[in-house]
Amino acid sequence: MQDLAQLEPIARDLPQTKRGHERCVALLESAAELFLEHGYDAVSLDDIVNHAGGSKASIYKYFGNKEGLFKAICDYRRDQFFKDICMPFNPDLLDFRNYLIQTLINFQQHLNQPEKAAFMRLVLEQSQRNPEIARHIHEHGPKEIQMAIAKALETAHNKGLLICANPIFSAQFYFGILRNIEWKVLMGLPVEDSDQENINYISYCVDRFLDGHQKP
């Protein structure tokens, strides 16, 4: 479970006690469960409170309204994504090729989890309906993830491990390796390749990516 400081960018009014922290996280997790089961529009704040306990006053205090709560769920899950998938690159401890391969393998395994895939589809649906939610999710989701890899590419460039004149463009190119798998997941199609086939595919693409970032 996250500590109080880690909830600061997620909740409007940061809980000051362990009990308040637990209430905040319970609302996030209960709301996410209900949204996935019934859909965003079908779930009311009363439904969330009845499921999680507490009162609507807590939702208003911590998140402002239902839309704020949904944004907070996306932020909360993004933080878990970073923790589980997108680790900082330390050139003194990690081989850069292995780092790039493992990051994509972690991402692909994340996509293959049915609950994670369902949440991605929910996010996509709400983004199409609400431009403000779409902007928030893009700025605090895909863009942040791309910036994390761009930072790793910049570090590798400065260490002489590759040539990367535009780390942001290269980061976007890098995540394109999984675009086909990502679209299959979003459309509810099965990813039929075996784990080993996916590893072979990712390894091949990362090698081609690195080939393109060497001196001409």
Rank of each mutant, 00 (worst) to 15 (best):
M1G: 11
M1Y: 03
Q2D: 09
I10V: 11
P15A: 12
P15W: 00
T17F: 05
K18L: 14
R19T: 14
H21K: 13
R23K: 13
V25F: 02
S30D: 00
L34S: 05
F35V: 05
F35R: 00
Y40V: 02
A42T: 04
S44I: 10
V49W: 02
H51K: 14
S58I: 08
K61W: 08
Y62M: 15
N65F: 06
F70R: 00
K71S: 03
I73T: 06
D75A: 15
F81G: 02
C86R: 02
C86A: 14
C86H: 04
D95V: 03
I101A: 03
T103C: 10
L104Y: 02
I105F: 01
Q113I: 11
Q113L: 12
Q113S: 13
Q113R: 11
P114Q: 11
E115R: 13
A117S: 15
M120R: 10
R129D: 09
R129A: 15
I137M: 12
H140P: 08
P142L: 12
K143D: 12
I149S: 00
I149F: 00
A152D: 01
T155A: 07
H157P: 08
I163D: 03
F169I: 15
S170Q: 09
Q172I: 08
Y174I: 03
G176S: 11
G176E: 05
I177C: 03
N180T: 12
W183V: 13
V185L: 06
E192C: 12
Q196C: 05
E197C: 10
I199A: 09
N200F: 11
N200V: 07
C205D: 06
D207A: 10
F209E: 04
D211E: 14
D211L: 14
